[in-house]
């Protein structure tokens, strides 16, 4: 995965598979602590502690179509390369939170990439789920939810090219205002 937003696109699939109805994506930049964290929380089926511990192994997966599961291991690899880590907090029936910590100024920390596009495709691709995005930096915060977007747009589809472009601008301008890392 080349960017943080690629990881988001990927890890969110786990939450969807877990039957989540609300998925929160939270990015925090703590410049003074040299920390960049990505947290994905869901209210899906959760995992017991044994499964959660194995979820970071590349040769563990709950699916049957293939024998490997690389989403979380690749996230962990990228986090560890910057002196960070990945933690999974999960409880059966309650949901799961995956938190990846990256070194903010580390040269190997992936760029954020096309977060607006990822958020859009995620919403479009999973109409049955609600998504929330929160980005916090010392300069401020930006938050948006799939419900905000759907309520604002009403009958007009998210897939309209003009609307997609407008949402990209909405993300870009707001993230720029809080000096979010690109």
């Amino acid at each position: 995965m080349k960017t943080i937003s690629d990881h988001i696109l990927d890890i969110v699939q786990n939450s969807v598979k877990a039957g989540a109805t609300l998925i929160e994506i939270i990015v925090r930049e703590k410049w003074n602590d040299d920390l960049y964290t990505l947290e994905i929380r869901d209210d899906g089926c959760g995992m017991d502690s044994e499964t959660a511990a194995r979820a970071l192994e590349p040769f563990f997966t709950s699916r049957t179509t293939r024998k490997v599961g690389l989403g979380l291991p690749l996230l962990r690899q990228n986090a560890m390369q910057t002196g960070g880590s990945v933690a999974i907090d999960s409880e059966p029936g309650r949901g799961t939170a995956v938190t990846a910590r990256f070194g903010y100024s580390h040269i190997d920390r992936p760029a954020m990439g096309d977060i607006a596009g990822v958020f859009l495709l995620t919403i479009i691709g999973h109409p049955q789920c609600s998504f929330a995005y929160l980005h916090v930096t010392p300069e401020g915060e930006f938050s948006i939810t799939s419900q905000d977007l759907r309520e604002t747009l009403g009958e007009v589809p998210l897939t309209d090219p003009g609307i997609m472009q407008a949402i990209r601008e909405l993300f870009g301008n707001n993230l720029e205002m809080i000096k979010a890392s690109k």
Binding site: D6, V16, G117, I124, P157, T159
Partner: peptide, 30 residues
């Protein structure tokens, strides 16, 4: 993971934009 690593995001984006652009009654999901 395998799809994303191979560029599925661009592919999906293209399907969403192009079906909308050509007014094809399509639903694109993941």
């Amino acid at each position: 993971t395998c799809g994303i690593a191979s560029g599925a995001k661009d592919t999906m984006n293209f399907f969403v934009e192009e079906t909308s652009h050509q007014a094809i009654d399509a639903v694109v999901t993941q």
